[in-house]
Simulated scan of single mutants.
Amino acid sequence: MKFTDSRLFQIALGFLVPIVLLGGWQYASVTGYVAPNLLPPLNRIYDTFTDLLASGELAEHLRITIYRVFSGFVAGLAVALVLGILNGYFRFFRYLFDPLLQALRNIPSMAWVPLFILWLGIYETSKITLIAIGVFFPVYLNLLTGIMSVDRKLIEVGWVHGYKGFRLIWHFYLPATLPSLVVGMRSGLSMGWMFVVAAEIMGASKGLGFLMTDGQTTGRPAIIMTSLILFAIFGKLTDMAMVWLGSKLLYWHDLVDRTPKGNI
């Protein structure tokens, strides 16, 4: 196996662009090409991070944000699975519900905020509901598309061998739609991290979104950049976890990426 095909090389290559960007960032800040009040140097961001960590404030902000994202993800995923399966397998439900869902999908996230504050108050229920909406639509759309895109010849093979009802769904539909579902879950999780910022504007006193907004209000760009970097890091970590889960669910799936390089 070539060194360029090794996992270590691939990981190192993934760090190359971020390191170059961080180096350019630090150079632009310390040399005065960019004003420090607009783009603070990395050492100031590091000091801000360590101060927040030492005080225990950062751990509390991270804990509540991760809780909100996880809760919203689970709720949005559960509803998306139910409606996606119903609308995918049964035309009646698809004709009944899908037009409304496709219309609601185009409403911007911030447009839900005043309505949820009015209906659910400023506490956790409204925040988790908003995140769940962000998670719901990517999962639902990918699952619905995956079910409707299953090869009819595959289903006919199941019919020929006597598979009907739930057995047909379990042995034929479900494996065929799993790749689409995994993609939807990854997209939904990333939307959960995006929507949590909007959710934490709704009267929150804790969370990375609140921390970022507080940095803007008080004119502390280092706080804003620290929050953004943490969003990027934890979003990437959860996405990696989802990729790992997808690889376990789709261990049987024959992918081009797993093809020996000499065969391409």
Rank of each mutant, 00 (worst) to 15 (best):
residue 3 F to Q: 12
residue 3 F to P: 13
residue 7 R to K: 14
residue 12 A to G: 12
residue 12 A to Q: 09
residue 18 P to L: 08
residue 20 V to P: 04
residue 20 V to G: 07
residue 22 L to N: 12
residue 30 V to D: 06
residue 33 Y to I: 13
residue 35 A to H: 10
residue 36 P to A: 09
residue 39 L to K: 05
residue 42 L to M: 12
residue 42 L to W: 01
residue 42 L to R: 04
residue 45 I to H: 00
residue 55 S to Q: 08
residue 56 G to E: 06
residue 56 G to Y: 03
residue 60 E to T: 14
residue 62 L to C: 05
residue 62 L to K: 07
residue 63 R to H: 11
residue 64 I to F: 02
residue 66 I to C: 08
residue 67 Y to A: 14
residue 69 V to P: 05
residue 72 G to T: 04
residue 76 G to T: 07
residue 80 A to D: 03
residue 83 L to A: 06
residue 87 N to M: 08
residue 87 N to F: 00
residue 88 G to R: 01
residue 90 F to N: 12
residue 92 F to V: 14
residue 92 F to A: 15
residue 93 F to M: 13
residue 94 R to P: 05
residue 94 R to L: 01
residue 101 L to T: 12
residue 104 L to E: 08
residue 107 I to W: 00
residue 110 M to T: 14
residue 119 W to I: 15
residue 120 L to D: 04
residue 120 L to C: 03
residue 124 E to Y: 00
residue 125 T to D: 08
residue 125 T to E: 10
residue 125 T to K: 10
residue 126 S to Q: 08
residue 126 S to Y: 01
residue 128 I to E: 03
residue 129 T to I: 11
residue 130 L to E: 03
residue 131 I to R: 00
residue 132 A to I: 06
residue 134 G to Q: 02
residue 142 N to E: 11
residue 143 L to A: 10
residue 144 L to C: 09
residue 148 M to E: 12
residue 153 K to D: 15
residue 157 V to C: 09
residue 159 W to P: 11
residue 160 V to M: 07
residue 160 V to Y: 01
residue 166 F to D: 13
residue 169 I to Y: 09
residue 171 H to L: 14
residue 171 H to P: 05
residue 172 F to Y: 11
residue 179 P to K: 04
residue 181 L to F: 02
residue 181 L to E: 01
residue 183 V to H: 03
residue 183 V to R: 03
residue 184 G to E: 03
residue 191 M to R: 05
residue 195 F to I: 07
residue 199 A to Y: 00
residue 199 A to Q: 06
residue 201 I to N: 04
residue 205 S to H: 07
residue 205 S to K: 08
residue 209 G to H: 00
residue 210 F to H: 09
residue 212 M to W: 00
residue 212 M to N: 01
residue 213 T to V: 13
residue 216 Q to L: 11
residue 220 R to S: 08
residue 226 T to R: 01
residue 227 S to K: 05
residue 230 L to Y: 02
residue 231 F to R: 07
residue 234 F to P: 14
residue 237 L to Y: 00
residue 244 W to T: 14
residue 245 L to G: 12
residue 249 L to C: 07
residue 250 L to I: 12
residue 251 Y to S: 14
residue 264 I to T: 08
